[in-house]
């Protein structure tokens, strides 16, 4: 725990991928979890949007005594409101998700905030190891579970990856009892977004494997050839050493053993 550091986690209303219902957003939940693990209940959790949303209680149920809601309508831009809020608060660490689950989901918010505040941004954080002497050591999540260690100067903004510690269970009682500090703010309508046409996502066509063949015989061959990979190699009567060697060769070939 780093009790002297001022940490803010930004949360949004998520969307369940199957039912489409509002929920605690996956990455935002992790941002709150990471914040809680850093500073415990001293964490400030901020939401920009409607103050009556029941999902806010799901965040609060993670053990937050209170939350701050910068109340504005759905069609408004969160950026100016947040920028002025953060400029006033001057936190050391701001945690967000990588991409929101509703709205444009562009993932630009942390970048725009960082640009507006002039702070460094660390993308896709898996863990904040420690914060000491105005420096934080942060682990970035790389694909396939790999990690990169980065040292960053406070204050900074970090977007929290799915590889970070999963958000703790939300408890009904504390969520219900948490206080919401609702602040009304001068909001700006996101004009550009109003021009957009939104529609339910069309399923994307699967790319077909197009066979470029010059002759009919080649096309015939391509169409009739058995798919590769059905029925692998089976080794029965070789010695254990040979069998193990065959497996090991495959591992080397696939470059999983280096």
């Amino acid at each position: 725990m780093q009790p002297n550091v001022n940490v803010v986690s930004l949360v949004s209303i998520g969307r369940h991928p199957q039912s489409g219902r509002s929920r605690r957003a996956e990455q935002d939940g992790r941002a709150v979890e990471l914040g809680l693990s850093l500073v415990g209940e001293a964490l400030t959790v901020v939401h920009v949007g409607e103050d009556q949303d029941p999902v806010l209680r799901q965040y609060a149920g993670m053990g937050l005594p209170s939350m701050t809601v910068l109340s504005q309508g759905k069609e408004c831009d969160a950026l100016p409101v947040l920028t002025s809020f953060l400029k006033a608060q001057l936190p050391s660490v701001v945690l967000t998700g990588v991409r929101s689950e509703s709205g444009e989901s562009s993932g630009m918010l942390p970048y725009l905030l960082a640009e507006a505040l002039g702070w460094p941004l660390v993308p896709r954080v898996a863990e904040i190891l420690h914060i000491k002497d105005g420096q934080a050591e942060v682990l970035l999540a790389l694909p396939r579970g790999q990690r990169r260690s980065v040292q960053v100067t406070l204050p900074f903004i970090a977007s929290v990856d799915n590889a970070a510690q999963e958000a703790r269970q939300t408890a009904f009682g504390p969520g219900l009892r948490a206080t919401l500090h609702v602040e009304t703010v001068d909001s700006v309508v996101d004009d550009a977004a109003i021009q957009w046409e939104m529609s339910a996502a069309k399923p994307r066509p699967k790319r077909l494997k197009v066979v470029k063949a010059k002759t009919a015989a080649d096309r015939m061959k391509a169409a009739t050839a058995k798919p590769v990979g059905g029925g692998g190699k089976i080794m029965k009567n070789e010695t254990p050493a040979e069998k193990a060697q065959a497996i090991f060769d495959l591992l080397l070939e696939e470059k999983v053993v280096r």
Binding site: H16, Q18, S19, R21, R168, Q169, T170, A171, F172
Partner: peptide
């Protein structure tokens, strides 16, 4: 344990979250 502590073990938390979000 569940409503106050948010401490349903193992897959409990996930299952409850699913029930809330997808019935």
């Amino acid at each position: 344990l569940t409503l106050e502590k948010g401490d349903t073990p193992n897959k409990g938390a996930q299952v409850l979250e699913n029930i809330i979000a997808t019935d």
